[in-house]
């Protein structure tokens, strides 16, 4: 079953068209990595899926609901499609536990005790059970991002959108975040991951997509994608990445 269906998506900022017609289907349980040069529009596509960016035209259907339809409750769609940000965006005035329980309490109207029980179990899942009472600024980048993943899981979403989740991390902290993401993938979570982590894409993704100049240039299984890319731009891109 399709979890996400994107039909002929366009997005312009004033005169500048950054997304020039994208069609994409993502099945339930699939892990799809999106790679591409900076400015290629890959993050924009992701941010259109939960309508943090409003598409200029086209349709996006998330779990059967057209996010552009007037009758669709976008806040409900966002509980079904969680998001993890490059800059974590934790709430600095709340404890780690409060960051994770805010959604369940204020969106789902869950009782405080139940929400905290859920919060503790999610923090345990990301390996941060002992940090519940800490404030975000007391955590390392990797820990912050794991809290952000726990927060996105707190509404029991059907899909999680990752927007360059490891790009703001020190190199030695990338691994702990990728581990949590691998674990989620193994549990069958549907994931769309915009990333520069080629290793992760190769090992964990079911499909890898290359976006450049606002369109999908290649969409393939990781083996084919990395070993025998058909698209010329992708060949150049992988060549440049490999040099480093």
């Amino acid at each position: 079953m399709e979890m996400i269906k994107i039909i002929n998506l366009h997005k312009s900022y004033d005169q500048l068209e950054v997304i020039k017609g994208i069609d994409l289907e993502i099945k339930s349980g699939e892990v799809v990595c999106i790679i591409g040069p900076s400015g290629s529009g890959k993050s924009t596509v992701l941010r259109c899926i939960n309508r943090l960016e409003t598409p200029t035209s086209g349709h996006i259907i998330v779990d059967g609901k057209d996010i552009m339809a007037p009758e669709t409750d976008i806040n409900h769609v966002r509980t079904e499609a969680g998001m993890v940000f490059q800059q974590f965006n934790l709430f600095p005035h709340m404890t780690v536990l409060d960051n994770v329980t805010l959604g369940p309490i204020k969106v789902r109207n869950m009782g405080k005790t139940d929400a905290e029980e859920l919060g503790h179990s999610l923090l345990k899942k990301v390996g941060l059970a002992d940090k519940a009472k800490n404030y975000p600024e007391q955590l390392s980048g990797g820990q912050k991002q794991r809290v952000a993943i726990a927060r996105s899981l707190s509404l029991k979403p059907k899909v999680i959108l990752f927007d360059e989740p490891t790009s703001a991390l020190d190199p030695e902290l990338v691994g702990e975040v990728l581990e949590v993401m691998k674990q989620l993938a193994a549990e069958g979570m549907t994931m769309v991951v915009v990333t520069h982590e080629m290793g992760f894409a190769r090992d964990v993704a079911d499909r890898v997509i290359f976006i450049d100049q606002g369109i999908i240039q290649e969409d393939n299984c990781p083996e084919q994608f990395f070993s025998s890319p058909k698209n010329k731009r992708l060949q150049d891109f992988l060549g440049k990445v490999a040099e480093h």
């Binding site: 943090l52 806040n75 966002r78 969680g82 940000f85 965006n89 969106v107 509404l155």
Partner: peptide
């Protein structure tokens, strides 16, 4: 901050 809030359905 607002994006994170909206992203959890607030």
């Amino acid at each position: 901050q607002a994006e994170a809030g909206r992203s959890i359905g607030l």
